[in-house]
């Protein structure tokens, strides 16, 4: 009997908190058919926003993948003073509010800040432009690749890499032929997580982008802007599109996860 009580409490809570709200937004979006949704999504400023989101996310994923693998190798395979500190630094973004991330970047890379001023003088605009948005997105998704790849590197040990070295392979060959195949599922998992986080980032990007419609507005910023301006149809349509991406990510994660353990 208590088994059923617990089950109903758990399922009831999940239904009210997640199931019904998410279901309702799909229903609200499609209640007038497919046409208004397609019209909303093909609006030029909405299309532009999706493009901006894609560009920012691709750069953030690319840079965080390269950097994430590098730092994971460094943390697991090398000993150096300050290693623990580096590890803490990598985890730090989890605990920082996205708004604070945006503020932090403005204070350093804004036009009136020392580094930002110097960059502006040399023709590089960071804040209210792509570089700042990529930096903000990288900041919030920084730990994801590192924390997926590091435990696997730890797990596989270095015997195979040593064998490759003794057989005359250089560092790059060893990495490409031995290390990379061993970490590929963890890496794929980390990349998918980074991509999801990058596509969905709102707070940090809201601060550093300046929210210029048709210029630096991303998909998540469209949702907020249209909702505040009583264009709920577009807000719902873009939300549902982002939610569908999230669901695809969930499916991918569930496909990738079991392979990690084999």
């Amino acid at each position: 009997m208590p088994k059923y009580a617990l089950r109903s409490v758990a399922l009831g809570y999940l239904t009210l908190l997640v199931g019904v709200p998410v279901g309702l937004i799909f229903w609200r979006t499609f209640e007038h058919g497919l046409k208004p949704v397609i019209d909303s999504l093909t609006d030029p400023s909405v299309l532009h926003a999706f493009r901006v989101t894609a560009i920012v996310a691709l750069w953030a994923v690319l840079l965080n993948t390269v950097f994430g693998v590098g730092v994971a190798v460094l943390l697991v395979r090398h000993r150096f003073p300050g290693r623990r500190l580096l590890s803490v630094l990598v985890d730090l973004p989890i605990a920082v509010s996205p708004v604070v991330v945006g503020l932090a970047l403005i204070l350093v890379y804004g036009r009136h800040a020392p580094i930002g001023g110097w960059l502006t003088d040399h023709g590089v605009k960071v804040i209210f432009a792509y570089p700042g948005m990529v930096l903000a997105t990288m900041f919030v998704s920084l730990p994801l690749v590192v924390r997926e790849v590091a435990p696997v590197l730890e797990e596989i040990g270095i015997e195979q890499e040593q064998a490759a070295w003794t057989l005359g392979a250089n560092r790059l060959q060893t990495f490409r032929r031995v290390t990379l195949p061993a970490i590929r599922w963890a890496l794929a998992y980390g990349v998918v997580l980074t991509l999801a986080r990058s596509l969905g980032e709102y707070g940090a990007v809201a601060v550093v982008s300046g929210r210029l419609i048709g210029k630096t507005q991303t998909a998540t910023l469209v949702v907020e802007e249209r909702f505040q301006n009583f264009d709920q149809g577009t807000a719902y349509a873009v939300s549902v599109t982002l939610a569908l991406v999230a669901i695809v990510v969930l499916i991918l994660i569930n496909v990738l996860r079991p392979k990690e353990h084999t």
Partner: peptide, 25 residues
């Protein structure tokens, strides 16, 4: 399915989460 749904709040953009809850509540 229930197990997979647990991860949905992490995968869903936070602004969409806000809008989703506002639709119901």
């Amino acid at each position: 399915l229930v197990d997979a749904i647990i991860d949905l709040p992490f995968a869903l953009p936070t602004i969409v989460a806000g809008l989703v809850l506002l639709t119901l509540y």
